[in-house]
Amino acid sequence: MKQALTCLNDLKTLPFDQLIDVRAPAEYAQDHIPGAISLPVLSDAERAEVGTIYVQQDPFLARKIGAALVARNAATHLQGVLADRPGAWRPLVYCWRGGQRSGSFASILAQIGWRGGLVEGGYKSYRRLVVRALYETPVAPRLILLEGGTGTAKTAVLQHLQGQGQQVLDLEAMAQHRGSVLGGRPGGQPAQKMFESRIAMALAGMDAARPVFLEAESNKIGARIIPPMLWQAMLRAEHVRIQAPLRARADYLVENYSDLLADPALLIEKLEALAQFHGHAQVQAWQAMARAAQFQPLAEALIRQHYDPGYRRASRRAGAPRMVVELPGLSPQDLAQAAARIAGAVSPADSGSRPGL
């Protein structure tokens, strides 16, 4: 049974119990259809070996060796992950383009008696839907950007907005990066395609009649690039400015960059990247503060001398905000109240005329 994917929301109503990606682990790691588990019928090394034999020796020999490997790996899955699946279980299988790998595995499952299916066109058909959503189709919901200097807890305000029932697109969470030069997270970032999948699926599930809140970002978050249709919508979007006292911002950074501060050697290494903007003498002074564990003064210095000047330049390009939220501090109560104020000033009915917030 071939299962066509005509839109991203089709994934929410598939008449199957489990989506199975049989591509090699490296392919799955780069991106996969949301909700799919990885049951590769060829490992990365096996896939490379079969491909080399196909090109350099003999296609028939490659197919024969590939079939043996698929059968062996399928047996491992049947005796392992799939051992407890009941007779009524319905799997939906896919590979890169719905070809031999998925077809072979689906055939084995069918011989057992499971009424499964194949994703028509494989992963490529899903990827086309993501590309259509992010590269070809204008973003439908009205976007409201939260902007403010580093350390103004914009991400936390987003989380409060979400907790209060608002629609939120947390790009930094999807990119696994805090957006600044020191903003890397343990484990690194997802591949670009995975980042785009997360965005596309989130947007597909949103109500176009209601606003969507997100942080104002540059067009890159770490190494991940914001897709063009979303970026164009962000450039046109209204924005709300959040401001807070310097000391509160520095304290917030120290708390929220605790993973980086726990590794002073890594912090010192990352600070070196700022030498191109501030010179080696200044960076060495900041590095000395890091070695001495003077994290709060270091955070204040970075805000004053690096982050805020860059933010002011970007703010002049962005134009005047529709609303400025002055926070006395950055306690959870302060942030919850800020989120409530912002949500209360933005209503779906504004989307046509967009008056001042």
Rank of each mutant, 00 (worst) to 15 (best):
D207Q: 11
T150M: 06
G149L: 05
A209M: 13
G163W: 08
V181I: 13
T155G: 06
K193E: 15
M194E: 15
A175W: 03
G148H: 08
G149Y: 02
T152V: 15
Q189P: 02
R185K: 11
M201W: 15
G148R: 12
F195L: 03
A156E: 14
T155D: 05
K193M: 15
G149H: 06
A156M: 06
E196H: 10
M194V: 03
V212S: 03
Q167M: 05
Q192E: 09
Q189H: 09
G151I: 02
E147Q: 12
P186K: 12
L158M: 01
T155Q: 04
L203E: 08
E215Y: 01
A209S: 14
H160S: 07
L158I: 07
S180D: 02
V157M: 00
R210Y: 06
F195N: 04
A200W: 14
R210N: 07
E172N: 05
A200R: 15
G183N: 04
G163F: 07
R178I: 12
L169K: 02
S197A: 14
A153K: 10
A191R: 11
A208V: 06
H177W: 03
P190T: 10
A191Y: 06
I144T: 06
A173Q: 15
L161D: 03
Q166N: 09
T152D: 08
E196R: 10
A191Q: 13
M174N: 05
A173S: 15
L145V: 12
G149F: 02
Q192V: 10
F195S: 04
L171Y: 03
S197D: 13
Q162C: 03
L169H: 03
P186R: 13
H160F: 13
Q162N: 06
L169F: 05
A202Y: 07
L203V: 09
R198Y: 14
A209P: 04
P211V: 03
L158F: 02
R178T: 13
G205F: 15
R210T: 10
E196Y: 07
G163H: 06
E196I: 11
E172P: 00
A204V: 14
R185E: 05
P186E: 09
G148F: 06
G183P: 04
A209T: 14
V212D: 00
L182Y: 01
S180Y: 00
H177Q: 08
E196W: 09
G184T: 13
R185S: 00
M206V: 10
G184P: 06
L203W: 14
Q162Y: 06
E215C: 08
T150N: 05
G187C: 07
Q192M: 07
Q192W: 04
L145W: 09
R210I: 07
L214Q: 00
V168R: 00
T152R: 12
I199R: 15
A173D: 11
G179R: 04
G184H: 14
V168F: 01
A202T: 13
